[in-house]
Design a protein around this nucleic acid. Structure first.
Lengths: 337, 337
DNA sequence: CTGTTAGCGCATTCAA
DNA sequence: TTGAATGCGCTAACAG
């Protein structure tokens, strides 16, 4: 802690130099740990730093070195557990490598996403990780014009300063559907949340195609992205006898919980009468009863690896610029064996 | 989007000035929306900006103006839902006010917390919000030496450039305990998670004092901060007949879910034989069955208000520097009526 | 080993 | 309305 209290203006490197009776270059050397400084002058400088409570300005340093030790993170709002896990993984590793993380939170529309990209560019980060379901490849390439090394999650892309991580839910859900089809079940209900992004669109599209090929019944249930809302809607839904059957595919597990709870409370047997599966599985999947079968990807690990890839990219040392995460189907009580 | 593609270095204000055939001062005026510029020169400049794909550097701007339009957020890791809600509220409002948010994630120990404070200081943010259970008042006051306006969540403090938000769980839980005591129940079990921070320590302390005064039985169950771990421990715990009773006070609701699930699966009746209450309540509380009674604070709102307070503090316009959130007891199926 | 000097990209005086 | 000059706090040559 500083001995001086209530200093008015922040001390600068000049102040320290003056107090220590050396030049600012010497102070700069000391605070940057260069070894070509005598022990005694080093002590002189360190004393002055302590007395003045001096802390270097990352701003000035960034301007001088053209490095900010700051990475940008572009994500949708942090109100989903899996995004928080992703974020946790990123901040965790960023810290290890000495990077600060600046957040660019996007709303679920393209306008806002591009606006945040502009902010990202002006913010002068050393690099960025983009996890956003609204942006397409062209918009991401555009960022490349500004020489910002990028790790993109959700699109397969690679370039000199661009790497990516893909999350494969599609092939896993198709595998699952194929097995279901073999058993002869033919009633799929897809919970379609409005504006849930590119990835979920793809999965819905794949599911519809599958149903078409296999001649299965498939229906879309449009719903809002809220447990409470869906829970109450499903309670209503299950009052109709014709609805009390089928396989419900839910985008996220807290929504799957809404279906499960509503079904159970309507006296429906899970998985005998109704089956439920969640595309994105987190903690909710195994807390509800019966537990929800889901496709799982360790988002914390995705975040960790994204930052690791980015730091390597920053050093020009990244070999493998495309990393694929395949989701794992975890069978639980909400689906038949 | 830029017309020029694959530009090598980022354009600077000099480049724009040169291309437009004006001085950099004029460019500066245009990008800052000053009105003392002719329409035609303005057009000249804007054309040059577009052609070069120029974006101002927040770093240089920050150095020149001594403002970074960046606020720091100090929080523990984002793997709890309530912290994510808090963060969501903060980023949401920060965006409205045009601030970027830089994250300083602390581990659950004081060493790391002070280290992050140092980083916060050097990072030269315009202000910061601190939500950390490890730091005490002195350490927070120390930051004040660096003239960083602060909003602290969890300590009651106020000063020229310092405001705070307190979260009152304690009085709510004491109210609840008093009512329980009146009914004659006398068996409290407090789930004590190691290193869960100042706030939980206070609550535990208050609970123990209460039990002492009222002559109630109270026991501490030491556990780790993990649903899965606790779930398996509680399954074991409930095999002993003498353990199949009492009121379980859990720090967070996902842990409460572990107790509830373990109890139900051990054939214990909730709330008749065992009652469960969670101090911090989030979505988990109403997803599990029976639902968990909990003390609720809207952390999203806490985050929103924290940033609102900070922006006012930055303008020197904040009137009321202490804001108190009182938690609400929400009775659900896990406690008796 | 240490000091001098010149930028980094921008905002902001002060003149013109 | 515009331009020239100065400085924000720091790093990084280059000299000595």
């Amino acid at each position: 802690m500083s001995n001086e209290s209530n200093m008015k203006d922040r001390a600068t490197i000049y102040g320290v130099a003056k107090r220590a009776g050396v030049s600012l270059a010497t102070v700069s050397r000391v605070i940057n740990g260069k070894n070509n400084v005598t022990e005694e002058t080093k002590k002189l400088v360190n004393d002055a730093i302590r007395e003045l409570g001096y802390r270097p300005s990352a701003l000035a340093r960034g301007l001088a070195t053209n490095k900010s030790t700051n990475i940008g993170i572009v994500i949708p709002a942090t109100n989903y557990v899996y995004i928080c896990n992703l974020l946790a993984g990123m901040t965790d590793v960023a810290k290890i490598y000495g990077y600060q993380t600046t957040l660019f939170v996007t709303k679920r529309n393209k306008e806002d996403a591009t606006k945040m990209i502009e902010k990202l560019i002006t913010s002068h980060v050393d690099g960025a990780i983009i996890f956003d379901d609204e942006l397409d490849k062209d918009e991401i390439k555009y960022i490349q014009n500004y020489n910002i090394p990028l790790v993109v999650i959700g699109h397969e892309m690679a370039d000199e300063r661009l790497a990516s991580i893909t999350l494969d839910y599609k092939s896993t859900i198709l595998d699952f559907l194929n097995k279901v089809a073999e058993k002869g079940d033919k009633d799929i209900k897809f919970l379609d949340v409005v504006g849930s992004g590119n990835m979920m669109d793809e999965i819905r599209y794949a599911t519809m195609n599958f149903a078409l090929e296999k001649n299965e019944d498939i229906s879309m249930i449009h719903c809002e992205d809220s447990y409470r809302r869906l829970y109450s809607d499903m309670k209503e839904y299950f009052t109709s006898p014709s609805n009390r059957k089928g396989l419900f595919i839910c985008p996220r597990d807290s929504l799957a919980c809404a279906v499960v709870n509503a079904a159970i409370e309507a006296g429906i047997k899970i998985p005998e009468e109704v089956e439920v599966i969640s595309v994105i599985g987190t903690k909710y999947s195994y807390i509800v009863r019966p537990q929800v079968s889901s496709l799982e990807i360790d988002h914390f690990e995705v975040g960790s690896i994204a930052v690791r890839m980015l730091t390597k990219l920053l050093k020009g040392e990244l070999e493998n610029k495309i990393y694929n995460f395949k989701s794992q189907f975890v069978a639980r009580g909400s689906t038949k064996k």
